[in-house]
Amino acid sequence: MTQQVEPGPTARLGRAVGTNGAVAGVVLVLPPGEPESARGPSALAHTSVRALTRELAGAGAAEGLVAHVVRYRGRGWNGDAARLAADAEWAVAEVVRKYGDVPVCLAGVGMGGRAALRAAGAGAVNSVVALAPWLPDGADGTQGADAEPVRQLAGRRVLIVHGTNDERAAPELSFRLAARAKKSNREVCRFEVHSDGHGMRQHRAEVRALSTDFVLGSLFGRPYARPLADALAAPPPLGLRMPLSTGFGRG
């Protein structure tokens, strides 16, 4: 069930990156954020996802893919307000207004990954990519990640990618969320990037190649690469702890 969205005056789509022709699909890239903050949007967080945005748009140009970075109202999730998720839902509605009935993929990084997963119930969304998603750990006595909703992921294809040495966003929390989602949605998979940290910088090329393969396959029906197809088809926990091979996407 999607939440009620009140688009703030500063939430907006970044400039379109991609085709100059007919738009057949859109990927909305959701930058990192912070658990709690009253500060405005982070220019640094926005800049950090530009390369991923360009790569996705370039790879899908022939199919009519356009990418936008979502510019949040502020950088904080802020508890029950879930502001980053609300801004993501607003952005999906804006895409429909701007481009019509086209499929949308939400691709989020860090706290943006949490926003992508939470906002997946928006009607035009057909797929979600969550890279190193930050999820609450429940250390304060709350239920944490186990209380994160997953019903909105039904009917969506979902890819989660997480470094095993991530000290900022616990990888085990994204595994637990994926396992709960997989119970009602076969098309959930999760890859582990061994010995890599939150930014997955050691295997950045492989992570981007995997994300691109998933986005183009989900939006336009391209055949998935064999490891991705195997991960989606495998029962848990196999399909949720798939190792991302060094050199994925090369050759």
Rank of each mutant, 00 (worst) to 15 (best):
F214N: 00
R222C: 09
G25S: 08
A62M: 05
L30V: 08
S195A: 11
A85R: 07
L135V: 15
L210H: 00
L30Y: 07
P7D: 11
H198P: 07
R168D: 13
H198N: 11
S174V: 13
Q152G: 06
G197Q: 15
P235Q: 10
A130E: 07
A61N: 05
L52T: 12
L65T: 01
P235E: 14
F175R: 13
R118H: 10
G197K: 14
A82F: 07
A119W: 04
R180I: 04
A132D: 12
V109D: 14
R54K: 11
G14E: 08
G64S: 03
A178I: 08
P103K: 10
A85V: 06
E36L: 14
R190D: 02
L244W: 01
G33M: 11
G251W: 04
N20Y: 02
E94Q: 08
A124M: 02
A181E: 02
R190W: 01
V161T: 05
N20E: 05
L238I: 13
V128L: 04
F220Y: 06
G14K: 08
A169Q: 15
A38Y: 14
A43S: 09
K98W: 09
Q3K: 04
P41K: 11
A147D: 07
G197Y: 10
A82D: 11
G18N: 02
L65H: 01
P236H: 05
G112N: 06
G14Y: 14
R156T: 00
W134N: 13
P235G: 05
A62G: 05
S37L: 06
T212K: 03
V23C: 02
W77R: 07
